[in-house]
Amino acid sequence: MKYFLAVLVSVFLLCSHSFTYGQKKNRMYSGYQTKRPQPNDKFMKTQWWLGFRAGANITEVSPTTYYSAFSPINYKSTRTEKEYNSMGMDQLSGQAGVEITLYHKGFSFSLQPNYRRQRYAYSNLYEWNGANGNSLLIQYDQENQLDYIEFPLFIKYDLTRDNIRPFIQIGAYYGTLVGANKHLTTSGIDNASGAEGPFDNQETTIGAKDIYIKSSVGIAGGLGVSYDFWNLRLVFDATYRYGMNNITNVKNRYSKNELTGIGDALDNIELRNVSMNFALLFPLRFISKNYDSFN
């Protein structure tokens, strides 16, 4: 994964360098050009954009290996496996950050550092039965909240050159964990303690940063559309992020998890996320009445 990131950044750097070299080259050998250079040729094919972006995201995780602190004696171990949420509005979270984009001839290279919160949930159900109708059924619902500072790098391609420009983008990201916690809700049915109905109580929130590693990397792809007006660009995009590393700290799976007493042990998991963003970008070059900064 480190090599993948290295290649992406290297491509970005090389492209940036070749643009500047190309501009210098044009200046040096303009006399050989058959067509007299026009201001539009020189200025309008390259643009830097800087702005803010924010949006919402929903997350699910993909478990690759299941773990539990419980090892069943008389029932199947599959009953200790967690039931994860699928992507839904229950896991709606948000992100906000800045964007710096280099545009050239329909292609854009966009770095979008952001602070993002991602949430996923899972539950476990356990049951104990005995003589005389004694039974206890307990469900543990855990909502996990992860806060990352993320550095995504995208390559965009504008499908048109109009004021309204749909685009596609692919890229990769690296996120560093800055905070994590778990919110546990316990509910169930206790037929052994004189209760006549279900109980639903005992909520608690605990820190969980130690049970995740700091890094989260993955690839991403998506669609979007930009709208140019005045000297601004408004962007909307939707991006799917595909995590490519196990974010669980395998060394702390049991030792730093305060919920092992209820059987909890994090599985090996990878993140899947859909993000939607609005961005407002400002051109950094050629802002004047004489030139159009959007082409």
Binding site: K2, N74, T176, K214, N249, V250, S255
Partner: peptide, 27 residues
């Protein structure tokens, strides 16, 4: 690149460290 080193280090022999609670569902 430096920050992502923990991805490569995130390995452990599951036999070297664990907690197991041996549950029986008989009340």
């Amino acid at each position: 690149t430096i920050g992502s080193c923990d991805i490569g280090d995130n390995e452990a022999d599951p036999a070297s460290s664990f907690l197991k609670i041996y549950d029986h569902n008989d009340y």
